[in-house]
């Protein structure tokens, strides 16, 4: 390298290339900063004007539907399917992570399970929707319902919570676990009293991320849970409106861009809030780990 003197610091050609590189990298870096700020800012600025008490507390009205009124049933529906999904996926995923981190004895088994979980996490949302529709809605006869949508989202959340919780459990200091076990208490006791209290910020952070991902995801609920309009409060066996599918309907049928801005605003504010919480939790976990 040094035998190639034209790349030395004082050579004009080398300096030019260096300056171009630095300029290019700074441009890319500022794009990475400006893109999210511009997109979020644009949607929030346009959305905040639409927001009113009526918008978040009334059902949609008008013809075509959604031209007037609000998005209350969509907020309720999104909450309902997400709660069903969390109720199913959270206990399953945390229990699975506990098995992998504490009980599993063969490293090879752990590696295979991790591999399968990562494959599952890579499956696109559409395929979960296709499975949920074909299997849950049609073959199991659940119909288009909050239950079918919640179960579909649960399948999608499971690997995310599993991978995050497993990492959180593993990050707990090895010696803590060993000294506890050396005192002769059971594994279950160690998990409950020593490991979970230290791993919970990481577990909650992974769950919040998986949950916010699911709240924003329209495709899996599009065929399994969502309808354009509901009159009643959400129940497990009836279809629901959700925020992302309502936004999709408002835009694709060109009903009302004004209300689409409002819906996007509500959705984004919820997600940003959840993501910030997850970020703070993860920071705290990392600090404790160091």
């Amino acid at each position: 390298m040094a035998s190639n003197p034209q790349w030395r610091l004082h050579q004009p050609r080398a300096l030019l290339a260096e300056r171009l590189f630095v300029a290019g990298a700074w441009i890319a870096g500022s794009m990475g900063f400006l893109l999210p700020v511009a997109i979020i800012g644009y949607l929030l600025v346009n959305g905040i004007g639409v927001l009113s008490w009526e918008f978040i507390s009334a059902p949609p009205r008008g013809y075509p539907l959604g031209l007037h009124g609000g998005i209350l049933p969509a907020i309720q529906g999104s909450l309902a399917v997400t709660m069903v999904a969390l109720g199913v996926a959270f206990p399953l995923a945390v229990a699975s992570a506990i098995y992998l981190a504490e009980y599993a004895e063969h490293p090879r088994f752990v590696a295979i399970m991790q591999f399968l979980a990562e494959c599952l996490a890579a499956v696109p949302a559409l395929l979960f929707g296709v499975l949920g529709y074909g299997l849950l809605v049609v073959q199991f006869g659940l119909g288009i319902s909050a239950l079918a949508g919640g179960l579909t989202l649960a399948m999608m959340m499971y690997p995310v919570i599993l991978i995050g919780s497993h990492a959180a459990l593993q990050s707990v200091d090895r010696s803590l676990r060993e000294s506890a076990l050396a005192m002769g208490v059971s594994r279950a006791y160690v998990i409950r009293r020593a490991l979970l209290p230290r791993a919970w910020p990481g577990i909650i952070a992974a769950t919040v991320l998986a949950g916010s991902h699911a709240v924003g995801s329209a495709v899996p609920v599009l065929f399994t849970a969502a309808v354009v309009q509901t009159r009643s409060a959400p129940s497990l066996d009836s279809p629901v409106m959700t925020l992302p599918t309502h936004l999709f309907y408002l835009v694709s049928e060109a009903v009302s861009f004004e209300h689409a801005y409002g819906t996007a605003f509500v959705l984004l504010v919820c997600l940003l809030f959840a993501n910030t919480c997850a970020l703070v939790l993860r920071r705290r976990l990392r600090m404790r780990g160091e």
Partner: peptide
């Protein structure tokens, strides 16, 4: 600053991107 910005970008739902592109 950049890392949380990218996480926000990754966290925006697909349907919101679609709407943003549309307008």
């Amino acid at each position: 600053v950049l890392q949380p910005c990218l996480e926000v970008l990754a966290g925006i739902p697909s349907v919101v991107y679609g709407f943003f592109g549309f307008v």
